[in-house]
Amino acid sequence: MITRRSLLKSLPIMGVAAGLTAKMGWAAAISSDNFKTQQKFIPPKGSCDCHVHVFDPAHFPFAEDRVYTPENAPISDLERHLKELHMDRVVLIQPSPYGTDNRCMLNALQILGKHKARGVAVVDDEVSAEILHQLHKQGVRGLRLNMEARAGGKLSAEESASYLKKMAAKISSLGWHLQIYTNLKVIAALSSTLRQLPVPVVIDHLGKLKAEEGVQQPGFSELLALLDSGNVYVKLSALYRVTKDTSWQNVRPFIDALVAHKSDRLIWASDWPHTMPAPGKKRTREGIEYFYPVDDISILNVFGEWLPSEKIRQEIFVNNPTRLYWAR
């Protein structure tokens, strides 16, 4: 059977593939098929891609109340992605189309093995200690909190702080962290709470900064200050979410500032397989939302240019992920 994926792979010229994609109404080639750049930067041995997803609806159905329906991203695609980027380890993040059903992510952890893979789960607010302990045994080391989706992103600072404290208390004895997806404005409003939580906090995707607005934009100085607490990490990931410039160069001032401030609280991730709707398209659970086309190797290459020393590369790609995900 000829599939969209196999057909794209058979086309030798990217322009032909792009033309056929548009003609047949496909949004884009999947990101694991979108390596157009020659890899110049090989990350250190033991490097970890700290944010990926796996989608396998044939074996693990999506949640009925999901916002969108992604295409398949099986473990075999993930393994190819890691091999291409020379990543020896990976952190699987529970994606929103699965809701609190973590079985697909846990299955991937079991197949990949705990020496290579760890997980970050999504759970019900009233999750029991017993379930959390079971997740720990299966390789989970954090909880993902999507502050953008919760109550439509309209929680007050007081409500958000209460929620963070509640979930942090549930996981503090396990040595886990909270992974938070939100924007710089919310991060700034919650900075006092984030400093005082009894668990580490990982800020997703550069705090959703806006590269075009520069390093003086509101909230970025607060993000830098949070690194000083020793309790907060920033994930250097999803550059395509913070800029429209695919040379990525307008993100460099932010990376430079973060690295200069506290490189031992930064981790790197690809955000594979790039779940984002095409420009101007609204998300819907009807039909399939194809993955956004991102050349992950081009992003990895610029980090090779931006990170000034082997010591800092070792911290960001190896040591910091080890501390967060493999120390316990």
Rank of each mutant, 00 (worst) to 15 (best):
V186F: 03
G139N: 02
L239H: 08
S172N: 13
D204H: 10
R252Y: 12
S162D: 07
L209I: 15
A211V: 08
N183Y: 04
L194F: 13
K165R: 15
K235Y: 07
R141V: 08
N250G: 01
L227K: 00
L236C: 15
I203C: 10
R150W: 09
G219S: 05
L194P: 03
L135Q: 05
L223E: 12
K137Q: 15
L155A: 03
K210Q: 12
D204S: 09
V140I: 04
H177I: 13
T182H: 06
L135I: 06
W176L: 10
A157L: 01
S162A: 15
N250L: 03
L190S: 00
N183G: 07
S162T: 05
I131S: 09
G219E: 01
P200V: 12
A161F: 05
S162K: 07
K165Q: 15
T243Q: 02
N231A: 12
P198A: 14
K235S: 07
E213R: 14
S162E: 05
G139Q: 07
M147V: 08
Q138V: 02
L174R: 04
R144D: 11
S192E: 15
I180E: 03
S173Q: 15
K235I: 05
S237P: 06
E213N: 14
H136Y: 03
I180R: 00
A238G: 01
L190D: 05
A189M: 08
L223M: 15
G207S: 04
A225N: 11
N231F: 09
A189H: 02
P200I: 11
L226G: 02
V186D: 00
Q196H: 13
M167Q: 15
H177F: 14
D245W: 00
E130D: 15
Y163I: 02
V140F: 03
P253H: 11
R141G: 10
R150A: 11
M147K: 00
F220C: 05
Y240K: 09
T246Y: 12
V234L: 10
L236V: 14
G152Y: 08
V251P: 08
S160W: 06
L197D: 01
L135S: 06
V242E: 04
L236R: 12
I131T: 13
K208I: 02
S237N: 07
L190G: 04
R241T: 10
Y240E: 13
L155M: 12
I171W: 00
L164Q: 06
F220V: 07
V140K: 02
L135F: 14
R195G: 01
Y240N: 11
Q179P: 06
E130I: 12
G230N: 11
L143M: 11
V201G: 13
G139E: 04
L155D: 05
